[in-house]
Simulated assay, not measured.
Amino acid sequence: MKDKRKRKPQKAVVVPEENNNEEKNFVFGHHATVEALQAGRGNKLFLQEDARGEKIEQLKGLAQTQAVPVKWVPKQKLDTLSDHGVHQGMLLAITPYEYLTLDGLLEQTTAEAPFLLILDSLEDPHNFGSILRTADASGVNGVIIPKHRSVGITPVVTKASTGAVEYVPIARVTNLSQAIKQLKDAGYWVFGTDMEGTDYRQWKVDGPIALIIGNEGRGMSAGLKKDVDEMLTIPMTGHVQSLNAGVAAGLLMFEVLRKRSGS
């Protein structure tokens, strides 16, 4: 592993979401709406006109605190805005999500032994949201995604993450291979996932590390496999020799937490 080079301090730059379509600027469901309001990203809160209860009162209070206007609308309106998602009678119009640059992510990652996750062209928003939720729970310091041919932060991702999207820093990059080179130059060991490799239970997780999770169907791209320091595998005994990307990512994230906590 290369010695960690001194990095010139840089401003933590954010990259605004380019596609500002209205449909991508909503979150819905209780947890996602609460977290977005508390993060100061709310523009207008839509509540179902006949909705009542403690959760509704909580949202009204948060909206008032954040000076976010509240509009009572029919359920049909919420169904349309959420694309018939499970909105629970609440939906929040938000400012577009702001991604970090890789420089910005590295600058704000101050952990002694940071752990980053690289998602190689993940396409399923539910998988992405689930991974973000697990990343927050297991202490991952940041997530890196490609700018093209990959799911970004959408209402479905936000809801599936139960608000974790507001806590896990996400960098979006143009080229994952270049990003991996930059991570190596910064002193990171980069690990990939495949059917063949080192048993993940033997994984050495000391120091700065980055883990690549491949596409749901194709796995890791061939180009990235040449860039990693070591491939990891999860031994299986069943008839189906593959795991859902979110499940595999969760198992590996908690393995790092387990090893680093000494349990």
Rank of each mutant, 00 (worst) to 15 (best):
F28E: 04
V13N: 08
H148P: 04
N244L: 06
A210F: 06
A179C: 05
Q88V: 01
N127F: 03
G142T: 06
T33V: 03
K225V: 02
D206N: 13
Q241A: 02
Q38E: 12
E49D: 12
G250H: 02
L45D: 14
N20A: 04
S130W: 09
K6N: 13
P16I: 10
V156R: 14
L92Q: 06
G207F: 15
P96T: 00
T233Y: 13
A32N: 03
E49T: 00
E196I: 11
S263I: 15
A222F: 13
S130P: 01
I94Y: 09
V156N: 09
L37Q: 00
A36P: 04
L91M: 07
L78M: 03
G104M: 14
A222S: 13
T158D: 09
L117I: 02
N19M: 15
V86C: 08
K2T: 12
Q76N: 13
F46P: 03
E98W: 04
A63E: 05
I94S: 07
A113H: 13
A12E: 15
S263A: 13
F115W: 13
P69Q: 10
Q58M: 11
G53I: 02
D83T: 07
V157P: 04
G214K: 02
S130F: 06
S161H: 09
G104I: 10
N141F: 09
T134D: 09
T198A: 08
G262S: 05
V140C: 09
K6V: 09
I94L: 01
R52S: 01
P69L: 07
S82N: 12
F26Y: 13
V13M: 10
Y188L: 07
V86W: 14
G129R: 09
N127C: 00
F128Q: 04
K184D: 12
N25H: 10
A179W: 01
D3C: 12
A164Y: 14
I118W: 00
G219K: 03
V140L: 04
D50W: 12
K184M: 09
S82G: 06
E22Q: 06
G53V: 05
K6Q: 15
A113M: 08
T95D: 08
G89N: 03
R5I: 15
L224H: 07
D136V: 00
S138V: 05
H126M: 07
S82D: 14
E196F: 15
R260K: 11
M231A: 06
H30A: 01
L59W: 03
L37N: 00
F128P: 00
M1N: 10
G187Q: 12
G163S: 03
M195Y: 15
V173F: 11
M236T: 07
Q178K: 15
V247I: 12
T154L: 00
I180N: 07
P155K: 01
L59R: 06
I180P: 05
